[in-house]
Design a protein around this nucleic acid. Structure first.
Lengths: 193, 193
DNA sequence: TTTTTTCCATACTCGGGCGTATGGTCTTCA
DNA sequence: TGAAGACCATACGCCCGAGTATGGAAAAAA
């Protein structure tokens, strides 16, 4: 049976394990990432896993690397394309509702910021995104230092939102309430043109 | 040997276990709260623990309850005493640097927002604090709905700060850099009188 | 058609935390 | 002083996940 037709190879690849791992992380957090449960979830046994990976640790390593790469490319391609800095900033916020999996993974990673393998990834991602935001504020005319403060502030709002979302203390992303809040955030943080 | 003199009872109470549990949570997160390690840390064995508590779960329950009570009283007494709403809001931010343990515990709890025992506590605490903040903004003349949005925004900044602090991506609380950032936050979020 | 190589299943060992059972040692109080 | 209760130590059984060892089946190569 052809893989190209069924889109379902009879044999698994390392990338398949990584993808499934990211789904588990998004759904239940990094603490729930265990080899045997993951294998059960994929309808297979550990034997397969330890052929593709040397340890649980290496799976996490590679999964995170894959995710970070995806996120970095995403940042550059979708936000980098918008020339107007104000639109770019607004798009940053609006992007939270889309890109579901990516943000769910990020949210889960934030909850494990003390983890030795997670922390460096989180550091780099936050740094990249904040630099991006600071850049936009500079383009809007802020002096460098102010722009950095404002970028940190803006990113904090995003992080706080993710936290409140984990606590389900935030209106549904598609609700009118959410739109009103988002307007308020934009109004408060992004200077009028 | 009298306990009153040495301040070191020969026998432990449930409250002692709770306090030590909160320290562990603050230092290593809720996942690191385990009975045997906790006992070892206190230079004692499990036998004692299971005399005071029925399970690990109940220890967590009571520890969280104790912490929440402390936090609620703290909110009412220290912030409630400030009549000027603007000063009250500023004090809210400045309070982060003080009250070390309380905020470290809260930060650790945020990292476990999905935990069934933690979530309700987090919900109530965030709700209380945001209501407090919204109240202050109302006193500053904001209409009710705007004040709630602004309170959510303000609290998100606080939450985001805690997150960045966990990643050590924030200037030291006592540095000049931090003061500059704090000024910027206050300037941006709290309306001039 | 053999012979590798690839991929996975099964069956272990090991560590570590949870909860229980039981007994010992203090203190307290009748 | 002797009995009762408070507090803790020790020793167990259980569960569950990590990692290893080994063998089998299927595909690819020779």
């Amino acid at each position: 049976m052809s893989d190209l037709l069924t889109n379902k190879r009879s044999t698994l690849s390392a990338a398949d394990w990584e993808q499934e791992a990211l789904h588990v992380i998004a759904e239940q957090g990094i603490g729930a990432l265990a080899v045997e449960p993951l294998a059960r979830r994929m309808g297979i046994t550990k034997g397969s896993f330890y052929w593709h990976f040397s340890s649980r640790e290496s799976l996490l390593e590679q999964s995170l690397e894959s995710w970070e790469g995806h996120d970095a490319r995403n940042l550059a391609s979708s936000l980098g394309a918008i020339t107007d800095p104000r639109e770019r900033l607004i798009s940053f916020f609006r992007r939270v509702s889309r890109e579901g999996l990516t943000h769910e993974v990020y949210s889960a990673l934030c909850a494990a910021a003390d983890h030795p393998q997670v922390k460096p990834v989180l550091d780099r991602v936050a740094e990249r995104r904040m630099a991006h935001i600071a850049q936009a504020f500079e383009e809007l005319g802020m002096p460098s230092e102010t722009a950095e403060h404002h970028a940190r502030l803006t990113y904090s709002v995003y992080l706080g939102f993710l936290q409140l979302q984990r606590q389900s203390q935030v209106p549904s992303l598609s609700s009118r309430q959410f739109e009103a809040y988002l307007d308020h955030v934009i109004e408060t943080l992004i200077p009028r043109r």
